[in-house]
C-alpha cells in the first residue's frame, strides 16, 4: 500500500484539503522568494565578480522606494497568510453542534478513549466516515498532544483542564495517531491507529462491543457512590446547588462574576471547589482530587450533562475554554477559504 518514499500525507478529513491548499500557497510564495534571492545572489556574484584586486565600484545611495517596496509587499503577502490561516484555525476550533462526543484521557504512555455510549478503546479509535466527531481530552500526568496527521488535526492534552478539537473523517482506512508533545521515556510508543469506517461497518462495530454502559449512567452511579446527592439535591435540604438543568446555563458566582456551566467548569468544581463558588452557598464542599479518576470525572460530567433537558444530543453546549459553536454550522458548509 505505502510507497517507500511518501512525500505527502493522506488526506482523510474534511479539514485536510483546506490545510493543504493553504500549505501549497505558502509553498509557492516561499519557492518564489527563495529562488528569487538565490538567483539574484548567484547572478550578482558571477556578473559582478572581482576582476582586479584594485577595483573599486561606485557606491550606492540607497533607495527609499525600494526599501518601501520590500517592506510593504512582503507585509501584504504575509497578511494574506494570516487571514487565511486564522480563518482555518477559527473553524478548527468551532465544532459543529451535531458532533458526536469522544472522551480521551492521556497518560504515560497510552491513550484511553471512551465513546458516548460507553465503548472503551486503548490506542485505537473507531469512527464513522462523514460524522463530525468532537474530542474532549485531558491528561492524568504530563502534557501530551493528540495528533492525527491524516486529519491535519492536533491538540495538546493537558492535566488539570479539558481541551477540545474536532474532525470529520472523509476516507475509510487506518491512519496514525501520534503523541506529538514530548511526554517522557516512551513518548514514541504513545501511538495508535484511527480506523475510519463506513457508517454501516461502524454500527456493526458499535453493537459488537460487550458490557458497555453509557457514560451518563456510569456517572450516575459515581454520583451516588461519592454521596454527591446528599448535598446536590432539588429540595430544601440541599446544601449545594441543584444540578438539574444546570449544564450550559450561566452561573452567578460569589464574586459577582458569571460563568457558563460547561465541562471545564464542572470538572474544576469537583476538583477545585473553591475556585468558582456559587453565590449563596457555604464553602463546605471537599475536593475530590485523587479520589476520582479523570475517566470518572468525565462520566460525572456526562451524567450532569444528561440532567439538562436538551433537544437531543445535537445541542451540545459550548466546550470549555472555547467560543460557542456557530449555529447551524454543518460540516457541509465548510466552503474552502
Amino acid at each position: 500500500m505505502r510507497p517507500d518514499l511518501p512525500l505527502f500525507p493522506s488526506q482523510a478529513s474534511a479539514m485536510a484539503p483546506h490545510v493543504d491548499a493553504l500549505y501549497f500557497y505558502l509553498l509557492a510564495v516561499s519557492a518564489f522568494f527563495s529562488l528569487l534571492i538565490a538567483i539574484l545572489v548567484i547572478f550578482f556574484a558571477i556578473k559582478f565578480r572581482r576582476r582586479s584586486e584594485d577595483e573599486v565600484p561606485v557606491g550606492n545611495e540607497g533607495s527609499l522606494k525600494l526599501e518601501l517596496a520590500w517592506t510593504v509587499i512582503p507585509l501584504l503577502i504575509t497578511m494574506t497568510f494570516f487571514v487565511w490561516g486564522a480563518k482555518l484555525y477559527f473553524r478548527m476550533n468551532r465544532p459543529p453542534n451535531d458532533a458526536t462526543q469522544i472522551f480521551i484521557v492521556g497518560k504515560q504512555w497510552m491513550w484511553k478513549l471512551q465513546h458516548q455510549d460507553g465503548q472503551r478503546e486503548i490506542n485505537e479509535l473507531h469512527v464513522p466516515v462523514g460524522t463530525p466527531v468532537r474530542l474532549t481530552m485531558t491528561s492524568e500526568d504530563v502534557i501530551h498532544s493528540f495528533f492525527i496527521p491524516a486529519f491535519r488535526m492536533k491538540m495538546d492534552v493537558i492535566p488539570g483542564r479539558y481541551t477540545q478539537q474536532w474532525f470529520r473523517a472523509t476516507t475509510p482506512g487506518d491512519f496514525h495517531i501520534f503523541c506529538s508533545q514530548y511526554c517522557g521515556t516512551k513518548h514514541s510508543a504513545m501511538i495508535g491507529t484511527v480506523h475510519v469506517m463506513e457508517p454501516t461497518a461502524f454500527q456493526a462495530w458499535l453493537s459488537g462491543g460487550s458490557g458497555s454502559e453509557s457514560l451518563a449512567s456510569a456517572g450516575s452511579k459515581l454520583f451516588q457512590q461519592h454521596a454527591c446527592n446528599t448535598c446536590h439535591r432539588n429540595d430544601s435540604q440541599a446544601r449545594g446547588p441543584n444540578l438539574e438543568g444546570l449544564f450550559g446555563k450561566p452561573v452567578q458566582l460569589q464574586n459577582g462574576q458569571t460563568v457558563t456551566a460547561d465541562e471545564q467548569y464542572i470538572r474544576e468544581s469537583i476538583l477545585m471547589p473553591s475556585a468558582k463558588m456559587v453565590a449563596g452557598y457555604q464553602p463546605i464542599m471537599p475536593t475530590f482530587q485523587g479520589l476520582i479518576s479523570e475517566e470518572g470525572i468525565l462520566q460525572l460530567v456526562a451524567y450532569i450533562r444528561s440532567l439538562s433537558p436538551s433537544p437531543g444530543s445535537a445541542a451540545a453546549p459550548s466546550p470549555g475554554g472555547m467560543a460557542p459553536p456557530v449555529k447551524n454550522s454543518s460540516p457541509e458548509r465548510e466552503a474552502p477559504k
Binding site: S274, A275, P286, Q289
Partner: peptide, 8 residues
C-alpha cells in the same frame, strides 16, 4: 483554614 481552600 477551610479545607475547600486547602490546595490553592
Amino acid at each position: 483554614g477551610p479545607q475547600i481552600h486547602a490546595r490553592p
